[in-house]
């Protein structure tokens, strides 16, 4: 490879590609099945900054040549990140958010409007993006969640998030069954906010 980021691309992927991918997927699966409940994510890999271990583990578990990935500005500014994802996942990196199946977002505060990403169609609502947002903190109060996967209601919080997060999630819920699905990754865990969830002020 003659790519300038070739050396960085060789920073370690999964220790065990089969079982680490399975464990990361299972964490993401339960996270989306039980919105707001943080699942432990043991991310045994060393991605290039500013890509976090947790977000990298989800990306390597779920992405490949069939899933174009969109990177937000801080990630796109680090050539080693794109090279890492191309090398370990074989995933194409796209500039157009409308062409992405996954989006990796290192700075959730500055993330572009969710509607710039594929929302699925009425016939095929599954043809929508999954957003992976890097967070540093999870909590149990601040937001109240309701919907499939939640017995009654549940308290939830994470940071950082976009300032207008609740409004974005309300707009996303209004599109149901279309819409985007969120995985919040960081602090050794992953939480899911699928399009089915109703996010209220706590």
């Amino acid at each position: 490879m003659s790519h300038p980021a070739a050396a960085a691309a060789l920073s370690a992927g999964f220790d065990d590609p089969v079982f680490d991918a399975q464990a990361s997927f299972r964490a993401a699966m339960w996270a989306l099945a039980r919105p707001g409940r943080v699942e432990r994510l043991d991310a045994r890999l060393e991605p290039p900054a500013p890509l976090s271990r947790e977000a990298a583990a989800l990306a390597l578990a779920l992405c490949d040549y069939e899933t174009p990935i969109w990177l937000d500005a801080p990630l796109a500014a680090a050539p080693a990140v794109g090279a890492f994802l191309r090398f370990h996942a074989g995933a194409p990196i796209v500039v157009d958010p409308g062409a992405a199946r996954f989006a990796l977002i290192a700075d959730p505060r500055g993330v572009i409007d969710f509607t710039a990403f594929p929302q699925g169609s009425p016939d095929y609502p599954d043809a929508s993006v999954t957003l992976i947002l890097q967070v540093e903190y999870f909590g149990k109060s601040g937001l109240v969640l309701e919907g499939p996967g939640i017995q009654g209601t549940d308290g939830f919080d994470a940071a950082p998030l976009p300032a207008d997060f609740r409004a974005r999630m309300a707009a996303n819920r209004a599109l149901f069954p279309r819409g985007v699905d969120l995985l919040l990754a960081g602090a050794g865990g992953v939480a899911g906010l699928p399009r089915s969830v109703i996010v209220k002020e706590g």
Partner: peptide, 21 residues
């Protein structure tokens, strides 16, 4: 194979996000 598993896993995640679809 791992590629097939990823493809199925992605489908499972979308299935969970849109219950019953």
């Amino acid at each position: 194979d791992e590629q097939t598993k990823r493809m199925i896993r992605r489908a499972i995640l979308k299935a969970i996000a849109v219950p019953g679809y």
